[in-house]
Write a protein that binds this DNA or RNA. Structure first.
Length: 665
RNA sequence: GGCGAGAUAGCUCAGUAGGUAAGAGCGCAGGAUUCAUAACCCUGAGGUCGCGGGUUCGAUUCCCGCUCUCGCCA
């Protein structure tokens, strides 16, 4: 079987962040690497999406040209992807003349075949910027609540969804001038007429459980004609129609075809692309985020079907959900992101670690949350403690007994390893990347256990050496099993160190010994270094200094009764002692005095207050919370702090000193 | 407003084609161990499987209603 793998074309309007990585690029890469190891002919392509109104508007706002914007981001995007080990065979861009040609060809073909229709629509035009405005670039007064800053698509104050024509006193967000309504003729794709074909295609595929319902609901609602042209000067010109360009959603997916053709040209075999697009033995798989599901499962296939030129339809579209950051949606405009290029700059030696964490947290069926706490604990307690520590453990034992070892593998290790490889393959073929990774960790766990039970360190050296050498087979297997997940540093370093090859996946699935002999040239070094709290803080500081979480509008709390409120016992306490909790960068252990004596409270304010500065101060204490153990210290109740800007915490206390234990009511 | 998804241990999640004591990892408590990056190994505590009804000998699992969260669409 031959595979063409694509990852969503990143928009050349901003950098990539960890959400993009976890959503599309990382799963696509793991899959591509795995398929290659499985021995399938695999082509993995991607490229920058360089058209669209957001780029035009951005250029206008920054007083530069769209070309300058894409020339800034295109190289950055490619560099970021390459540096996190995304093993693309080709990375191109949609501003390429060949892409224009392909997209225009599709337009003309569809027009000739009668799948397009012309319709006149009224749109807002900004006379100063000389451009049509998308809905969200129009601002005005909400007809429902009177809010004066409502957007053309939605009022952020009352939540009502709007259309720009409903706004009173509409203004352009670009220039502030009043936009004019203009009638404009556009081409529409007759998705309604294509629905039967699209539906037939839909039924021949088995979709991921998070993808299926989305398509289903669109189809049952009935597809409607959709505009594929607009009035802009940046984009792919519509043939014979000056002033109009193709809408990005129409031409960007066609990029998969033109990028494959560019790849073929770069190989000196200009027709090689047809193997991937016109041969039914090729499976085309698009990795995307959930926001792109409709375009890849319905619209793009509709375009290919309409063109009727024998293009292969997508085999699968394994879309992922979204990744959140510390409980809030990722947002480039609010700068609430971890950008890939910034992560690389801050932690150039920890690429595999990021890949590991994002694979473990991959939002495969539902949104997931990335937190720094989880990042640390996954690296230290799973990647290192379970997996790379096992490798280091075996290597250290081997080194102790000599530097050349004949490997005789016990049966159970061969079986475990082969089973693991098979189970991982099964999980990967169903796009369950977290499960594949967990299966791998399970192997390490079993091996850790059996090694502990065998306890070779209690045995005579020659006997011990034999036992440990048996685990050498596992090391050889890890050199391959880790490759799809940790290809930047861990897997290649291990292979280089032991001078072992990258095996085929089938070879790993076969329970026969992989190597006869292992040589260690130098004392082993840990493959991954433990993440210290200092390193973590510096990483956080580098990556989030400018970011602020979206304004945390406190949830409109359910109405509280006075009885409910009286359940909370608040007292003023005096802080008598304070010390840092060892090995916790946030926690302070505080001893507070109330009317009934001293209490211990562990509080997460170490990054905002030094212990000394708190001693003698008063604070408000929630007295009737059940005790909870933090870092082994029983903590009674909690102290109240106000959350200021950028998450700073500020102590809340009485205006004047009062006796400890005074009730707050 | 319509549609969809989710609600399971302190946290992040798996699972049950309805059936003897509901699982993992992390965290927590204790133990064992020292080859290993205070890592590994063992034991334990902790869950009326969102709420209310129904079907059934039996429901966390099926059906209906409700609440909350998220998303998509208009």
């Amino acid at each position: 079987m031959r595979y063409l793998i694509t990852a969503a074309l990143p928009y050349a309007n901003g950098p990539l962040h960890i959400g993009h990585l976890a959503g599309a690029y990382l799963p696509a890469d793991i899959w591509a690497r795995f398929l290659r190891l499985k021995g399938h002919e695999t082509l993995f392509i991607c490229g920058s999406d360089e058209h669209g109104v957001a780029i035009t508007l951005r250029a206008w706002q920054e007083n530069t040209s769209p070309q300058a914007i894409i020339d800034q981001y295109h190289p950055l995007l490619e560099k970021s992807l390459r540096e996190v080990g995304i093993s693309l065979d080709f990375y191109g861009r949609t501003s390429d003349p060949l892409h224009h040609q392909v997209a225009q060809h599709f337009f003309s073909t569809l027009l000739t075949k009668g799948w397009l229709e012309k319709k006149a629509v009224e749109q807002f035009w900004d006379p100063k910027a000389q451009t049509f405005l998308p809905d969200r670039y129009i601002i005005g007064t909400c007809p429902h609540c009177g809010f004066e800053e409502a957007y053309g698509d939605q009022c952020e104050k009352c939540g009502t969804l709007l259309s720009p024509t409903e706004l009173r006193d509409p203004r352009s967000r670009l220039t502030g001038v009043t936009p004019e309504k203009r009638l404009s003729e556009q081409y529409y794709l007759r998705l309604d007429a294509l629905q039967p074909q699209v539906e037939a295609f839909f039924r021949t595929r088995s979709w991921k459980p998070n993808v299926y319902p989305v398509i289903q609901s669109w189809l049952s609602a009935g597809l409607t004609p959709r505009a594929i042209t607009r009035d802009l000067d940046w984009g792919i010109p519509v043939p014979d129609l000056p002033g109009k360009v193709l809408y990005v959603w129409f031409e960007a997916p066609l990029g998969y075809i033109s990028l494959t053709r560019k790849w073929a040209e770069s190989q000196g075999q200009p027709t090689a692309w047809e193997r991937f697009w016109k041969d039914p033995d090729t499976r085309i798989v698009h990795f995307i985020g959930k926001d792109n599901i409709v375009f890849h499962t319905l619209v793009f296939p509709a375009i290919l079907l309409a063109a009727g030129e024998g293009y292969t339809l997508p085999h699968d579209v394994p879309a992922n959900e979204f990744l959140n950051l510390e409980g809030n949606k990722l947002s480039t405009s609010r700068r609430w992101t971890i950008d890939i290029h910034e992560y690389i700059a801050a932690a150039p030696d920890r690429i595999d670690e990021l890949r590991f964490v994002l694979t473990a947290l991959m939002p495969q069926t539902q949104d997931r949350d990335f937190t720094w706490e989880e990042y640390t604990s996954r690296i230290n307690n799973e990647l290192i403690a379970t997996l790379t520590n096992l490798i280091h453990r075996i290597l250290s034992l081997l080194w102790r007994y000599g530097n050349t070892h004949l490997v005789k593998v016990p049966d159970f290790l061969l079986q475990w390893r082969a089973e693991t490889a098979r189970e991982m393959a099964h999980a990967l073929f169903s796009y369950d990347f977290s499960k594949a990774l967990n299966t791998l960790l399970g192997l390490a766990q079993k091996a850790n256990k059996s090694l502990t039970e065998a306890a070779p360190w209690h045995l005579q050296a020659d006997e011990a050496q034999k036992i440990v050498a048996g685990y050498g087979d596992l090391l050889a297997a890890f050199g391959t099993l880790l490759e799809p997940f940790l290809p930047v540093h861990v897997a290649p370093t291990l292979r280089r160190y032991l001078d072992i090859q990258l095996f085929t996946w089938d070879r790993i699935e076969d329970p026969t010994p992989l190597v006869r002999e292992l040589r260690l040239a130098a004392p082993p070094q840990p493959l991954v270094k433990k993440l210290s709290s200092e390193e973590l803080s510096s990483l956080r500081e580098k990556l989030l200094p400018t970011a602020s979480p979206p304004p945390s509008t406190p949830p409109p709390s359910t109405p509280l009764t006075i009885e409910d409120f009286q359940k909370v016992l608040l007292k003023v306490v005096t802080i008598r002692a304070a010390e840092k909790v060892p090995k916790a960068d946030k926690l302070l252990k505080l001893t507070v005095e109330a009317d009934d004596g001293l209490h211990t409270v562990v509080s997460g304010v170490a990054q905002h207050y030094s212990p000394e500065s708190l001693i003698g101060q008063q604070a408000i204490w929630v007295a009737n919370l059940p005790p909870r153990t933090l870092r082994g210290i029983p903590s009674e109740g909690m102290l109240l702090f106000a959350e200021g800007e950028n998450g700073t915490l500020v102590r809340v206390g009485p205006e004047k000193t009062v006796p400890p234990g005074s009730i707050v009511k």
